[in-house]
Structures are given as C-alpha cells and as structure tokens.
C-alpha cells in the first residue's frame, strides 16, 4: 500500500497549478523514494518531471512501486476542496482502482475525505540523461515569469542566447521586435534568490515556443528562483526547486528551421 502525509497541503495545489495547463492526465509513480510524475504534453514537445521526495513528507509508506494514473482536471477539482493550510494524506492500495485524499484542517476541527477513480494510462516514458549543461542560468523566478509574459506580447518564439556577459531574450512579431538582456549580478547586495548567475562553458543560443515557457512559469509560486539549462541543439530544462522536497522540471524541444 501507499500512504503519504503532507503537512503543507497548499504545496500540492501549487504543484497541480504548475502542470494543469500542460497535461490532462498522468501516471504518478509511488515508490519508496518518493512520489514522481513524468508526462508529455499532447504534441510531445515538452515534458514535465516532478519529484516529491519521501523525506519531505511527515509520514511516508510505500511497500512497492505503484503507478497511480490520474485525470489531472479531476485531481485539481478534488484538491481545490482542501484548505491551503490543510494537512493532506494520500492513500491507495497496491493495485489501486481509486485513491483516497484526506484533508485535515490545521486546528483539527474539520476532516474530509475524497475518493477518486484511477485510470490506466499508457504513456511513453523517456529516459532523460543526466547531462552537463553548456549554460546554466539561475535567476529570480518572478523575473523570468515577467520576461516570458512580456516577450509573448510581442512574438511567439523567443531566442535565448547565453554568454558570460548575460542572457539575451529576443523575439519578433508583426508589430516589431523586443530584446531583454539580464546580466549576472553576484557581487551586489541582493539576497541569493534575487541574484542572476550565469555559468557557461561556451555561448549557447536557441529558439523556444513562448506558449510553453509561459505555461512553465505557472510553477513560479513553488520557488523564488528558476534555473535554465541549455546544451546546443538539445531541449532546454527549466527547473523550479521545491524546498526540502524535490523539484518541478520542464523540458522543451528547441525550434528548428529548415
């Protein structure tokens, strides 16, 4: 059986907000290490990779690997019924036909339980290699969100160029062009999460669909910083770390020109 108790139930809402615009269903994999999800959008150009480590839960029990196929739209409806301060417990059997969600109010004066049907999802599981990125950019997540939103007002594709001087975001649309350069500022008085840091072995440049990047920024409430990892001609990774718990990562294929 699987049983996991999460003190910050609000975290689950934030995690679902970060994926609900991209996928409609997914297999949550319950394993002794934690709860994970890998799922692609319907056009198979972007991938979501979530890990919630077992240590991040107040109580965690998982005897064997259990795939829990869930409809994300329905899951959002159920988790919405939890208060943002509620303690959430997720429970299911080894071969679950349904999953139980238990919500306890912080003061323990209200207890709700919801049972949701599982579904069999035949998805393609990809092996994402542990790779060394040619360029890694760490920046405030709110800044990245703002930047993607601004760029999307002008064009559909953003070109991201990373040099040691900084990161240049450029787009072109019917009305004109936009360029925003974010420079690394590690020597300032900013707190760590307000800094922009760039680490590169060589300059990298590639174009990406803003529609997807904008969806990824729905994860902003999960972390004060976001990390972008790029390798020439490979998908970009956009990572939001969840404190003491794991991460939400997105991979997006670069645009190609024939």
């Amino acid at each position: 059986m699987f049983e996991a108790r999460l003190l910050q139930g609000g975290l689950l809402k934030k995690v679902l907000d970060s994926i609900k615009d991209i996928i409609t269903e997914g297999n949550f994999d319950c394993s002794p290490n934690g709860l994970s999800l890998q799922a692609m959008d319907s056009s198979h150009v972007s991938l979501i990779d979530i890990l919630l480590e077992s240590e991040g839960f107040e109580h965690y029990r998982c005897d064997r690997n259990i795939p829990m196929g869930l409809n994300i739209t329905n899951l959002v409806k159920m988790i919405k019924c939890a208060g943002s301060e509620d303690i959430v417990t997720i429970k299911c059997e080894d071969k679950p036909d349904n999953v139980t969600f238990l919500f306890e109010s912080k003061d323990n004066d209200k207890i709700s339980d919801f049972e949701m049907k599982t579904m069999t999802i035949d998805d393609e599981h990809l092996l994402v290699p542990d790779q060394t990125y040619t360029a890694v950019v760490k920046m405030p997540s709110a800044e990245f969100q703002r930047l993607c939103r601004d760029m999307a007002a002008i064009g559909d594709t953003v070109n991201i160029s990373v040099t040691k001087e900084g990161v240049r975001f450029s787009t072109t649309g019917d009305m004109g062009t936009a360029n925003i350069t974010v420079r690394p500022n590690p020597s300032g008085d900013q707190k760590e999460e307000e800094r922009t840091e760039v680490q590169i072995t060589e300059p990298v440049s590639a174009g990406f669909a803003l529609r997807y990047l904008n969806s990824f920024t729905k994860a902003t409430p999960l972390s004060p910083t976001v990390t972008l990892g790029m390798v020439p001609n490979l998908p970009i990774v956009v990572e939001y770390k969840i404190a003491d718990m794991g991460h939400v990562r997105y991979y997006l294929a670069p645009k190609i020109e024939d």
């Binding site: 198979h44 092996l127 174009g207 669909a209 024939d258």
Partner: peptide
C-alpha cells in the same frame, strides 16, 4: 518552415 521535433528524438525511451 519552423517547427519542433518530438522529445523522443532527443531522449531515449525507457
């Protein structure tokens, strides 16, 4: 033509 390759062309299947 500008397009995107599916992710499976970059990452192998499990």
């Amino acid at each position: 033509v500008v397009g995107q390759m599916p992710l499976s062309s970059f990452f192998g299947g499990a």
